[in-house]
Design a protein around this nucleic acid. Structure first.
Lengths: 392, 392
DNA sequence: ATGATTTGTTCAACGGTTGAATTATTTGCC
DNA sequence: GGCAAATAATTCAACCGTTGAACAAATCAT
């Protein structure tokens, strides 16, 4: 039973090695890096090439003598992931291939709050169908899908609560027209954090991804893996207490971060109608707006400093609506982190904006699908073999 | 290179299976539980028995027909772990065997703050020598040691800062007279959290262990493993902000939890000279003391609720001086957690006192040593074989 | 051209697991 | 008491994946 697990492990090892190499590596490079024999690597690579997970590229010019090496890259025409996102004011769909390249991306802006559930899912199903058709045209096969939702999602994929959409106990994967596909549903901040993880340099990382929307969520990446919590409900940063006797939050408690740094609170304090107006005023140098952003950043910094003190993270990423506002938020956050994190003197904590910006969740969702294949290639290979057998 | 890793993995699998079984399992039970064949399990068990990690017990009476099964238990005369603890007002040493039984335990109470470093380490070396001699008398071999220290310990085992002992950049493992042994050094709260993890029911668990002493530290266990942070400095709960504009802490920031729920703050508010007096007054029903404890519990609850909101933990354990005080602290902590944790309505958060009390860190340290052997038995087996070869 | 050098493949051997057959030891039933 | 059924543990040939050495392929340096 565990004899085959060895091969599965080594297939994944080779695949990850190719993915993390700065240049297309040869079989010999992989053997040297992993400690496996060249013979074993050759056998593994053969399986991966016939399974359309790896491809050979022309021999690179080499310095010195010796037979030229055939470079290996992740296959661009292999399996791809479909990422879908439902958010308050837009829907999005994208396709990411095994190498991490975004092959399709489409956003449809519209306030989803007044719409009925089936309208929302119907339009998302349309976006998904377009994405699949586009992927097929490009010669990649969609192998699975992940849906990002701004709310609490339980282990079975049921949306237990999405307060800003007014949803409760909704089965999102149903009614998307993706019957043949494996569909997972996850919290928007979690998938955005995964997107940020895979967009950065390869290798393990620990960071806090803060997603500022109407609410404030967080995705926690520890040692290169997403931490979901005991029940999958981690990251409720918006309800960390900033002032225990502050104003009452809609959750019932007092002084939650959301009251100070939530999108609605910032807009109210700045006297702006929406984020676009807020941005314009901030760029114009409006004093009240700048003050509102500084106050929000300070409150965010207090909460983030608490998390960093407890988890000892070296990076904090600001995403969602915080990403475009990061120019004004980051300094205030950094001041509080610098002041309140006990070990900040030894090792600095970086506070930066999201690399992917507003696309983080949808790209992260698609990336999570291909990452699953990359980490467990044997499952994909077994599937590919049985399919070939069934439809020759 | 990875062919042998398969065997190492399976040796560990069998060992963990024996450890987590409610009754001594037979080879056939293990095979059924792990999915390995009976033949493979027999071979693995033979290696583990000759390596003194497992032992057979007499056949248990069975219901129905069939050859009786030979029960397997973790060897009581195999390798054991030596746990040492340096704390503000006591030193401790203990020996824990592979099955988790405490075979030796000794505490020497004395305020360590006025003493010189070499005095402290000298006395601890004496305790360690006594523990080893006692272990030898009982027929167990000490296979390694771990030292718990109330301070920041870096990855190399150097104590970077122990504020309440006045230590900075101290190499503790040097000068303990344990030259032949593998010695690790770790934060007191981390090792206490491990002790609590192994004292509870087997299987993965996620919880926050809060260690109240002069400072307030925390050990974080996620999915059955200790989380140490990006640099190993996780758990600085004492410097989480409870009131951002509260009194200035000795760390320089304002409103840290330590100011409200640290041992010294509680004693001052209650007007008690030491913890014993505090306990007496609280039991006598003194109003000022009760109020001081409730206020401390409330502040602790605010900070703990923030951590639980972010990490989605289902259990919080109060240890250190909080353990004997938990009768008065827990209710106040629970009120804040109930009020402030967003998902508390779905899934309750348990706040309870430490099972091991004041012994958690030393027992946890010794347990960490044997747990290392239990998880990587191949290393121990290899060592045992070479030793047998050298001294036949 | 020839040798040095590096890549990739082939093949017998090896370590570890597997599955079936075999032995060992008990209970239940006549 | 004897025998069949049942369960535990071991033995052994077969199998799977990795290993190491030998070998063929392709290039550069001289």
């Amino acid at each position: 039973m565990r004899q085959g697990a060895l091969r599965e492990h080594n297939l994944g090892l080779v695949l990850r090695q190719v993915a993390s190499a700065p240049r297309p590596p040869s079989r010999a490079d992989i053997a040297a890096a992993t400690g496996l024999t060249r013979a074993t690597v050759s056998a593994l690579v053969d399986d991966l090439i016939t399974g359309r997970l790896l491809a050979e590229v022309g021999p690179a010019p080499r310095a010195g003598a010796g037979r030229p090496a055939a470079g290996l890259v992740l296959a661009a025409n292999g399996p791809a992931g479909l990422g879908l996102e439902i958010n308050i004011d837009y829907l999005a769909a994208c396709v990411v291939d095994l190498a991490g390249a975004v092959r399709h991306h489409r956003v449809r802006r519209a306030d989803q709050r007044p719409r009925r559930l089936d309208e929302v899912l119907g339009e998302l199903a349309g976006l998904a169908a377009m994405a699949r058709a586009d992927a097929e045209r490009e010669g990649v096969e969609v192998a699975g899908a992940a849906v990002a939702v701004p709310g609490l999602v339980d282990a079975s994929g049921l949306v237990r609560l999405a307060p800003n959409l007014g949803w409760r106990d909704v089965d999102v994967s149903d009614g998307l027209g993706l019957e043949g596909l494996a569909v997972t549903v996850d919290n928007e901040a979690n998938l955005a954090a995964l997107g940020e993880l895979h967009a950065g340099p390869p290798g393990p990382a620990s960071f806090l991804y803060v997603s500022g929307e109407i609410g404030i969520g967080a995705g926690i990446v520890l040692n290169g893996a997403l931490y979901r919590g005991a029940r999958g409900w981690s990251g409720e940063l918006g309800h960390v207490a900033v002032r225990p006797d502050g104003p009452t939050c809609r959750c019932g408690a007092r002084g939650c971060l959301e009251q100070y740094a939530g999108q609605e609170g910032i807009l109210r304090a700045a006297g702006a109608a929406d984020t676009d107006e807020l941005m314009r005023r901030a760029e114009a140098g409006d004093a009240a707006t700048r003050e509102a952003l500084t106050n929000a950043g300070t409150a965010l910094g207090v909460a983030v400093a608490g998390v960093v003190n407890v988890l000892d993270l070296d990076t904090v990423v600001l995403g969602g609506v915080y990403a475009p506002l990061s120019r004004w938020l980051c300094p205030a956050v950094e001041v509080e982190v610098e002041r309140r994190v006990l070990t900040a003197a030894w090792s600095p904590v970086v506070v930066r904006r999201s690399l992917l910006g507003a696309d983080a969740a949808s790209v992260g969702a698609a990336g999570a699908v291909v990452r699953e294949i990359r980490d467990h290639p044997a499952r994909w290979l077994a599937r590919a073999v049985t399919e070939a057998g069934h439809q020759p």
